[in-house]
Write a protein that binds this DNA or RNA. Structure first.
Lengths: 381, 381
DNA sequence: TTCCGCCATGGAACCGCTTCCACGTGATGT
DNA sequence: ACATCACGTGGAAGCGGTTCCATGGCGGAA
């Protein structure tokens, strides 16, 4: 079933059918009606491939992401996809967990007619591949990754590390631990390193020094982070605060503190990074980088490129912001003894978040099944 | 730059170039070498669209998911994508947050040459669309959704609800709260309803009745769940245990307990659902449904269909399993007074998880940056 | 009435690859 | 020596659209 069959059945030429499909104004209403009728009758659906080949564009954008299940990554990814959807592009997702996979995928994306454009998220692109893209003329946009000359939407990780640490310094902390990850095990970006630099800046700004025993790196994930934190906290001279380079790892730190009976924030302040959904709920102080928005903006810029527009400036930087919550509320005293073994766990103070954060619970949605209601629907059925 | 240009430059016919590209054995080695050489020289990349149109298959599979940022959903999605990648299919992801969006996307997928096949995750497919797929002949596979006659990979949600509740009943609980969501606000599947039925079965099996005041539904998300739990726990006759239909919501329940100074598990047992990554870390008892695996299996079955194989049985059911962790450890007494306002928070017992769960920390990865080590790389640089 | 021009339309050429068919060549069988 | 055959190859047809160009009919202007 192709356009010729429709043309034959409607007693018109293929050109006319095509014009009807593309809503060309130069088709007489009567003809249009007849063609649409036949299309309906036959249940004809145009071939997307043929259209794409003929028009010379697959209307597809490829997105390359590492470890897509991580909360911070999937939020960016969802942002990218939402804009592409709105703009009528199909989003092909390429998940990357090894260097070989990254290279294979990037390689394949310069194939002709594979994708109109490419968004790479949180992944450095090797020089080789960059020139490959430049040569093939396929528009490339980065989100949360740097590469000179390539349009990119980023945040300043050094500044983020500095902000987080300065926040703790401002609360009087000087012994501040650092928990980092391994940068996607070699394939990912250098955000841990960058944030560490910011951490170091903030400390030296007040004349403090980095204590090597307070700097740890391990696999991404709450569990590993909690082990790292536990080691630090069990040492002779434990930190009074810990900065973790992701909320996931910060949650691990909170767990370690809880396990050891260390009160947060009174005995240990904790700051994370990303502001994922559960951070708000857990009362975790964090550095907000607008994850979904970074994806949306990156995608929007790619779409602009695809329309033939310029994107300026090449490097688009999103603001960072410390969101102060209960895990770093002001301490009573800095050097006093740990008062109670587990007195007043920080989550007890979570209510304070509502004020600190300016967050307001969503209004009841008007049905009896809304938050706060007894589940009428379930019980009635 | 097309295959004809290559043919010309190599002094051969287009057919021969095509044969070289497709590794046909019937090309003389010398000819092959010459053609490959020219391809290299010219930097020729074949057009994916032309190949696809000519072969009659786009080598693409579409995946429709609701609310892709939710942990349970993204794990399934990643499972689907990993198998498709291995099998050489491009994965187009369609995220759905409204009914209109769902219908628009499903509609578009029956277009000719849009996708070789479709995987729908955690989303019921309306009858209309089902017949549309049947008619178009595009293979469809469901993951975590039911539809008679369609190949699907599912778990038994009723049984899951029953298992969770029976676990609590087995610990002596009779006043068991239920926290559900709104089923993706109308677009999603009916898992809350199913699990509620299981919950009810388990209660009636021991002669207990559902207490309406202990059944609540609200938006998915930890925050809402914590509000719902708080209401229940503040009531005159609070529950001694709560079953939440997702780990995300269970985390909200844990938060509410913490806020109110209610000890888990001694004063309140909590069971979630899904076994997302953070559940293990938080010591949350949960019903494990193999999320990633469900996606992998669904995708594998779609690939089988695309190879023209039969998939039997149509309905593939994955086992469920209660993973007992510290949030539902055995209580000291069931009806005694609450002993300490916040004595021994459950997370203190999280270490027990390692034994309960059979989980063993991953081995150090051999670098000095592995978990447990001081961050050598950062400090050296 | 005649000429011009516009509008709606049919159909060929084209997008770039695969595949089938036909053909020439050299090896084999008798 | 001649028919046969297999093999390597060139090139046309086809996949299913879009788009351009030529054409015929019609209305308006002279």
């Amino acid at each position: 079933m192709n356009i010729a069959a429709v043309a034959r059945a409607a007693g018109v030429g293929t050109g006319t059918v095509s014009r009807v499909l593309n809503e060309s104004p130069s088709v007489r209403p009567a003809t249009r009606a007849r063609v649409l009728d036949v299309i309906e009758q036959l249940g004809y659906r145009p071939s997307r491939l043929a259209t794409a080949l003929s028009k010379g564009t697959p209307r597809t954008v490829a997105i390359v992401v590492p470890y897509m299940t991580r909360p911070s990554v999937v939020e960016r990814l969802a942002g990218v996809i939402s804009v592409l959807d709105r703009e009528g592009y199909d989003a092909v997702v390429l998940n990357v967990e090894t260097v070989a996979q990254r290279d294979r995928h990037l390689e394949s994306l310069t194939e002709r007619h594979r994708a109109d454009g490419v968004v790479v998220v949180s992944l450095p692109v090797p020089q080789r591949q960059l020139s490959s893209f430049r040569q093939s003329g396929i528009p490339l946009v980065l989100v949360d990754a740097e590469a000179p000359g390539i349009p990119r939407t980023v945040a300043d990780d050094v500044e983020g590390g500095r902000l987080a640490t300065a926040h703790l310094v401002g609360l009087g902390h000087r012994r501040i631990g650092f928990v980092g990850d391994l940068g996607f095990e070699g394939i990912g970006n250098a955000s841990t390193r960058q944030r560490f630099l910011g951490y170091r800046h903030a400390l030296s700004a007040v004349g403090a020094e980095v204590d090597e025993s307070l700097v740890r790196q391990g696999e991404h994930g709450a569990h590993t982070a909690s082990l790292l934190a536990e080691e630090m906290l069990r040492a002779r001279r434990p930190p009074t605060a810990i900065f973790a380079i992701s909320d996931t790892q910060a949650i691990g730190v909170l767990g370690a503190a809880d396990r050891l009976g260390i009160a947060v924030p009174d005995e240990l302040a904790v700051v994370g990074y990303d502001d994922i959904e559960s951070a708000a709920f857990l009362g975790l102080t964090t550095v907000r980088q607008q994850l979904a928005r970074s994806g949306e903006l990156g995608a929007a810029r790619l779409c602009a490129l695809l329309r033939g527009e310029e994107v300026r400036p090449r490097r688009q930087q999103l603001p960072l912001e410390v969101v102060a919550r209960s895990s770093s509320a002001r301490r009573r005293s800095l050097d006093g003894p740990r008062t109670s073994p587990s007195g007043e766990p920080h989550a007890r103070a979570a209510k304070a978040r509502v004020e600190v954060d300016g967050w307001v619970p969503p209004p009841a949605s008007g049905t009896d099944a809304a938050a706060g209601g007894i589940a009428g629907a379930l019980l009635r059925a």
